[in-house]
Design a protein around this nucleic acid. Structure first.
Lengths: 332, 332
DNA sequence: AACTTCAATGTAATCGATTACAATCCTAAC
DNA sequence: GTTAGGATTGTAATCGATTACATTGAAGTT
């Protein structure tokens, strides 16, 4: 197993100094053309590859970014990560992916670990709206994506889900709905809160007051979607319209409806996130789609700007538009 | 923005040498108890955190592993990655996640990049069964997961999908099926080939010869599942049993069936991967489940062993069992 | 011819940790 | 009181790249 060549080897073989080799490596224009060629030929010849670790140590830039998501087995987050990775990779950056396991403590720990590992910046999908522990990242640039925290001191790339919800609910109201159930996420998530506000405001704008039993909160996971849907449907007089705040709860709700094949005459489901088949879920009627990959991409772009030292408009919040899709009632 | 403390600072403040600090940091037993305490107190006091980059450079171990998957927005792969990350993280390792974008060239490139970044080992979900370019990883340990390559020189953690398929098909045959359609993946993937073999062998064992038109190959993506399902169903006399080789093709097939709400009297779908709702897809009747997270976990364990220098049984292929679930016919 | 200038390259310190080897301190034995 | 030998600790080289500063040489100026 022969050792990898180093700048020193290249320098010796080419008969120049390590400084010159390094200059060629970094495209320093002060090196004479012939020398550049000579060095490049030698590099080729020796199969030299730069030791990035040494480079990082010396320059304190690693061309690596950390990404922290609450969990991996989550299509939604992974679509965002896809966008992040595509953008960063195209700019020569690698991604260290960590899971916060939906725990604030773990989130804080991962930030520290990433810092120790010398990443140049961090993109975070926060686990809750509390941001007290995020100061740890300092002085590294930190960009939030999908969700934001109460502390307004961070860049964030979000989807305008307030508006998405408002409009979707409005669509139902236009159709004549007067009673719309609501299945929400944990109110400590900015997105869950926004959607709730959007729903409430849309009703209020028409002087409608929802019944208390029609508004239920869960945790964005399938299981709670299942449970809450059951809770709604088991009312002797269930609402004919139900808004579900995210895809996984929608999934759970769909499972409930499929398992209990009673016919829910006239049921309409409004839901979030345009995942494969979502439009075929039972009674699916309106879907609010978020630009998942694009959010990731934009977050990565913003992070790269910050890494580059651009502090313009800090802290910046980017809001991307959602889009609404009315679907023909699905599987019943 | 005050600089981070270094071993040197700690050493100076504590009045010892850097060697001693380093020894304490690494739990060297030769240091006197009091000194250990003193150093630890100083570390605490200065808020010292070790620079892992410098450590990596010196020790050439980074406590980092690379993971390459064909794509991110893929629940199946991400379940595997979840297992990998959980296992590695619990052992103090971080994960650099890269996408090969389903391209061999990109796969090779990512391996090189990971090597440059100084990872201690690589876990790869190969993009095809060609393994010529994997030698690049040498001398880093490389563990394949989910799929393997023709070159038998690598560790691999796989699911026994040959057997899973065989048994699922057998179940259908026991029920009296005599004609079973097959929707397969790209034959250049070990898993796609295995499943095809399992299907064929199960039929052959009962002296059944499938019609040529009943056997179709796609590429594991939703779109091809949709297309192939249509192709099968548009036969005037379509097969009453159809085996679908993976979840995404199943998804596409389900979409086809839902969009074309003709009643396919007596249709039974056998399929791979127990994802949420899969059992509710139209005509779903048998599902072969792979231990996705467990595969990831085992691959990580194996990688850690190899990183630790344990060459026992190299190259080792671990085959995990699949499990079969008969489900009541789903959405129709 | 002497001197300035600039282009091209080299020398050597440096990033922050680890570790081989050297040095020192104690304790116990004679 | 010496000294062998283990227990602790310190010194300084090292990992592989970058870069401030020094040096060299040749062209341009007067």
């Amino acid at each position: 197993m022969k050792k990898n060549a180093t700048v020193k080897d290249v320098a010796r073989t080419a008969g120049v100094s390590t400084a010159t080799v390094s200059r060629v490596l970094n495209g320093d224009s002060r090196v004479k053309g012939e020398t550049v060629d000579l060095v490049n030929r030698t590099i080729e010849e020796l199969g030299y590859r730069m030791n990035r670790v040494a480079q990082s140590l010396k320059t304190s830039r690693s061309l690596t970014a950390g990404v922290i998501a609450p969990e991996f087995s989550n299509e939604f987050f992974m679509n965002i990560v896809t966008g992040i990775e595509a953008e960063l990779n195209s700019k020569g950056y690698s991604v260290i992916l960590c899971s916060s396991r939906e725990s604030t403590a773990e989130e804080a720990r991962q930030i520290e670990l990433l810092k120790d590992r010398g990443v140049d910046g961090i993109i975070l999908i926060p686990e809750s709206d509390r941001g007290d522990h995020l100061g740890t990242a300092d002085p590294l640039p930190l960009v939030l994506v999908d969700r934001t925290v109460n502390d307004p001191a961070y860049d964030a790339v979000l989807a305008d889900t307030y508006r998405g919800t408002y409009e979707a609910v409005n669509l139902a109201l236009d159709e004549g709905a007067e009673r719309i159930g609501f299945i929400g996420g944990d109110i400590h998530l900015s997105t869950a809160r926004e959607r709730y506000e959007g729903y409430k405001d849309a009703l209020t704008a028409r002087n409608l007051v929802p019944r208390e039993k029609d508004i239920l909160f869960g945790d964005y996971h399938e299981e709670s979607g299942y449970r809450l849907m059951r809770e709604l449907m088991e009312q002797s007089d269930f609402p004919r319209y139900v808004f579900i705040s995210n895809y996984f709860m929608h999934l759970g709700a769909a499972r409930y409806l499929l398992e209990n094949s009673a016919l829910y005459e006239g049921l309409h489901i409004l839901s979030f996130d345009d995942m494969p088949l979502a439009s075929f879920f039972p009674y699916s009627s309106v879907i609010v789609a978020q630009p998942m990959v694009e959010m990731g991409r934009r977050a990565a772009q913003l992070l790269l700007r910050r890494i580059g030292g651009d502090r313009k408009d800090f802290p910046l919040t980017v809001k991307l538009q959602t889009s609404i899709r009315a679907v023909s009632p699905g599987i019943t």
